[in-house]
C-alpha cells in the first residue's frame, strides 16, 4: 500500500515524535513498503479463530490490593531531568 506524507505526519503526532518535514517523504515510502508486505496476512483464513493475546493460556494471578513498596521519592526522582520539592517538573500546562 502507499502512504502519503500527511498520514505520516498524523501518525507522528499521535506518537509524539517530531519528524522533520524533509524526512516525511522517505518515511512514507518505507512505512508504505512495510505495510504492503504485512498485507499478505489477508490470505490467511482466520474465520473461526480467537485472537491470541498472550502465551500459554495462563490466566493472570490475583493478588491482594495492598501497598508493598514505596516510600523513597528521592530514588524515584533521582533520574528526573527536572524535579522540585518531591515532584517531577515540566513546562506550565495550565494558565
Amino acid at each position: 500500500m502507499s502512504m502519503d506524507k500527511a498520514t505520516v505526519a498524523r501518525i507522528a503526532t499521535l506518537a509524539r515524535i517530531k519528524v522533520p518535514e524533509e524526512e516525511l517523504e522517505h518515511l512514507a515510502g518505507e512505512l508504505g513498503q512495510i505495510l504492503g508486505w504485512v498485507e499478505q496476512l489477508g490470505e490467511v483464513d482466520t474465520a473461526d479463530v480467537e485472537p491470541m493475546t498472550g502465551v500459554g493460556g495462563v490466566s493472570l494471578p490475583w493478588r491482594k490490593d495492598e501497598v508493598t513498596d514505596g516510600g523513597y521519592p528521592e530514588r524515584i526522582l533521582s533520574n528526573a531531568p527536572g524535579a522540585e520539592a518531591g515532584f517531577f517538573t515540566v513546562a506550565k500546562v495550565v494558565e
Binding site: I17, I76, G82, A91
Partner: peptide
C-alpha cells in the same frame, strides 16, 4: 519527564515531541 533525555520546547507537547 521521569528519566533520560529531555529536549525542551515551548509546551509540554512540544517537549515530548
Amino acid at each position: 519527564v521521569r528519566y533520560g533525555l529531555r529536549v525542551e520546547g515551548n509546551s509540554v507537547q512540544e517537549m515530548y515531541e
